[in-house]
């Protein structure tokens, strides 16, 4: 993901490692490689193995045998197509909302906050000081149809008076947006903060209005932050199940909820594993397409 590293390092700028340096580097890498091997590579093969198993025939729940039954994948897709679509719909929507809320926020902190900058940054991460689940539960109160927030909005005619918010898709998307906002704001902030203010001045000097300069100079230069922020929001959001579980209803179930229930409640390991792989594959394809497009100037 070259696009994530803001200042791309030319290969020939890297110092040539002599034999001894190389050995040191390899030694230093061992703990990391071991970690990756034990906790990533091995589990992923186990999961892949599980995904093509079929029930053992003993009738006992949770007993499966390896039959390389690839049809599991097809069955999973056809059964949960809608859940996949919903997951990606919610997570893309939440990512866009995060970008729309996060960009002005990050811009403000980077360019306008003055001495309040550090305080505001702390406030952005402050929600992490309390539990994720608790905060999501709190949103249930905030978004309760008879709670003061919804009542006030209705009273102000900002939302239709017959709108149901509690346990609705709106609540789920709002929850995801809220929970992942810091993951959007922080990378955006760090790439905005790095922009040389003289470039923005030069844009104004060359007849760009504030908005044109934002569009033609500031935004393109903050692309690394936009890419990093959207990925950091979109990827976990598309596999999320807490928000749908706590803020949604049975018609807002996301793929994360299906995996969870297949795994823990129905004890249908192969389907859960296959769903995980499908989710991974779709995310991978989407991310590759996105990063490629962002790498070129098309998004700029």
């Amino acid at each position: 993901m070259a696009a994530l590293t803001p200042a791309s390092v030319e290969p020939d700028e890297l110092p040539r490692a002599s034999g001894r340096q190389l050995r040191t580097v390899l030694l230093l890498l061992i703990p990391g490689l071991l970690w990756l091997g034990v906790f990533f590579v091995v589990p992923i093969f186990t999961l892949a193995g599980t995904s093509t198993q079929t029930p053992s025939g003993s009738g006992l729940p949770g007993e499966f045998v390896q039959t390389f039954h690839l049809a599991n994948y097809w069955d999973a897709i056809s059964a949960y197509r809608g859940h996949f679509a919903r997951s990606f719909f919610y997570s893309i929507l939440a990512t866009l909302l995060c970008l729309a809320i996060g960009y002005p926020l990050a811009y403000l902190i980077a360019f306008r906050a003055g001495r309040l900058r550090n305080l505001l940054l702390v406030l952005v991460v402050a929600p992490f000081f309390t539990s994720f689940v608790l905060r999501t539960l709190a949103w249930r109160q905030i978004l309760a149809d008879d709670g003061w927030v919804v009542s006030a909005l209705k009273w102000l005619h900002l939302i239709p008076s017959d709108l149901a918010v509690t346990a609705s898709p709106i609540a789920v998307v709002a929850g995801i947006t809220y929970n992942f906002l810091p993951f959007m704001v922080l990378p955006l902030y760090s790439s905005l903060e790095r922009i040389d203010p003289r470039l923005i001045e030069a844009g104004g000097d060359l007849y760009g209005t504030s908005f044109t300069v934002l569009r033609k100079v500031t935004f393109p230069l903050s692309m690394p932050g936009v890419v990093a922020g959207t990925l950091l929001t979109f990827i976990p959001a598309s596999g999320d199940y807490v928000n749908a579980a706590l803020l949604g209803n049975t018609r807002t179930t996301m793929i994360g909820n299906v995996v969870e229930s297949r795994f823990f409640r129905v004890v249908d390991y192969p389907t859960a594993a296959a769903l995980s792989f499908i989710l991974m594959a779709i995310i991978l394809v989407l991310v590759i397409l996105y990063v490629r497009r962002a790498g070129t100037e098309e998004l700029v």
Binding site: D196, R198, L199, E201, A202, G203, G204, D205, L206, Y207, G208, T209, V217, P220, L221, M223, E297, V300
Partner: peptide, 20 residues
């Protein structure tokens, strides 16, 4: 007047060319 409204241009001390 705003910078973009003035018939004046600047060559900046550090050039400030747009890197992108």
């Amino acid at each position: 007047k705003k910078p973009y409204q003035r018939p004046v241009n600047t060559v900046f001390q550090n050039y400030a060319l747009f890197p992108h």
